[in-house]
């Protein structure tokens, strides 16, 4: 509906909230090795999960180099503290907040 293509089609397993996001959120517990079909920047793509993703947790839609922003809601939610592969679990082990509360 808008240029950013917020939203998704097909597949009840993961949600991309904003078209600028480089992570998706799992809508179910997803086992390692499963393939998730979802709309990524306007294209229907398949992302193979390289780690297990619990319900409500995030995985990378692209390779994210260390030091790059992790983007959800179209905004940076933190910085990759190490290189993150496409399909990898994105959480406190590989993301650093720019806020002091969660910076350790």
């Amino acid at each position: 509906m808008n240029a950013r293509g917020r939203g998704h089609k097909g597949g009840a397993t993961a949600l991309v909230i904003d078209g600028r996001d480089n992570v998706a959120t799992a809508l179910a517990a997803l086992p390692q090795g499963s393939e998730v079909r979802l709309e990524v920047r306007g294209e229907l793509e398949t992302v193979a999960l390289v780690s297990e993703i619990p319900l409500g947790h995030k995985f990378a839609l692209f390779d994210i180099p260390a030091g790059d922003s992790v983007t959800k809601y179209g905004e940076p939610i933190g910085v990759a503290s190490t290189a993150i592969r496409r399909g990898e679990h994105v959480h406190i082990h590989n993301v650093t907040s720019s806020q002091r509360g969660a910076s350790t």
């Binding site: 319900l55 995030k58 939610i77 959480h91 806020q99």
Partner: peptide, 10 residues
């Protein structure tokens, strides 16, 4: 699944 404070507030 919430990783950072930014994410929670956003």
């Amino acid at each position: 699944g919430i990783t950072t404070l930014e994410e929670k507030s956003l």
